[in-house]
């Protein structure tokens, strides 16, 4: 197969970016999208054998759709044209021979570009650090079966926990909102007895951190759900909103003692 690639190149966070055009030929339909970029990079090295050249930087790691590292905005869609798929699981057979493909990084205020197609998603870690956990220390916990969980609740919690933290929801949203990501974590714990104890503090702390980091608001376009490679449902956003308002009304003041959520 043959492709024309328009790829965003940007030397570093401060530099001005631009699109560069590249031609690729003889690409197998079974080749994955990232393997296609590998081929392009190797070609850049080989073709410019005596010129100073820099390969195209993009984040990637497991290449089996679970680490959440890959983050390409392809032809105007996070992770490209295939529903429920990360870029690393996207194959060239999903494109037509001769296609022009535009590749950009995630674009959001909270995800600044580091270089080319690589962005900084550290903001997601900071949201989790604000409360995306159960405050249990290692050791001193009861037997696993002493905490029974309704199968339906466990399954729903698992649906939410399947989030890979890639940031496609933010990239898809016109407001660059992180609501789907945050609500998935809030929901996982709100649905489980282990997480209920700190549920009120958790949702408040995580939402506050999300706002502080410059993510936008949710205006219910559901673009996040449509583009999520793990099909995380917007029902989680509804659940988080419920948790948020309920906790706002009922939250007792807690003295900050260095422990607990927030």
């Amino acid at each position: 197969m043959k492709f024309t690639l328009k790829i965003w190149r940007q030397e570093n966070a401060k530099a001005q970016g631009r699109f560069e055009t590249y031609q690729l030929d003889n690409i197998s339909a079974d080749c994955s999208f990232l393997e296609m970029l590998d081929i392009l990079n190797e070609k850049l090295v080989n073709d410019n054998i005596s010129l100073p050249v820099d390969t195209i930087t993009f984040d990637h790691d497991c290449r089996e759709g679970i680490c959440g590292m890959c983050s390409l905005y392809i032809n105007g869609r996070p992770h490209g044209p295939e529903q429920g798929t990360t870029v690393c699981q996207l194959h060239m057979r999903r494109f037509n021979d001769g296609d022009t493909i535009t590749i950009e990084p995630w674009r959001a205020k909270a995800f600044p570009v580091i270089k080319d197609l690589m962005v900084d998603r550290n903001a997601f870690d900071k949201i989790i650090q604000a409360g995306g956990f159960v405050s249990v220390s290692t050791g001193g916990v009861p037997d696993a079966n002493a905490i029974p969980v309704r199968k339906e609740d466990a399954d729903l919690a698992m649906d939410a926990a399947a989030c890979i933290g890639c940031g496609a929801c933010v990239a898809a949203c016109k407001n660059a909102s992180a609501m789907l990501f945050v609500s998935a974590k809030v929901s996982q714990f709100a649905l489980l007895p282990q997480g209920k104890i700190e549920a009120k503090e958790r949702v408040q702390a995580m939402v506050a951190k999300m706002d502080e980091l410059g993510f936008g608001n949710c205006t219910n376009t559901y673009a996040c759900e449509a583009e999520c490679p793990k099909n995380i449902s917007v029902e989680n956003i509804a659940r988080m909103n419920r948790e948020f308002f309920f906790s706002k009304l009922t939250l007792a003041k807690r003295e900050s003692n260095g422990g607990g959520v927030g």
Binding site: F133, V134, V136, T138, G139, V141, P142, D143, A144, N145, I147, P148, V149, R150, K151, A154, D155, A157, M158, A161, Q188, F189, L192, Q194, G195
Partner: peptide, 18 residues
């Protein structure tokens, strides 16, 4: 035990047990 306490959503039976 530790992972369950952390809220890891292990597969469960209809009884609610692991």
């Amino acid at each position: 035990d530790q992972c369950v306490a952390q809220g890891v959503p292990f597969a469960r039976e209809y009884s609610g047990y692991l």
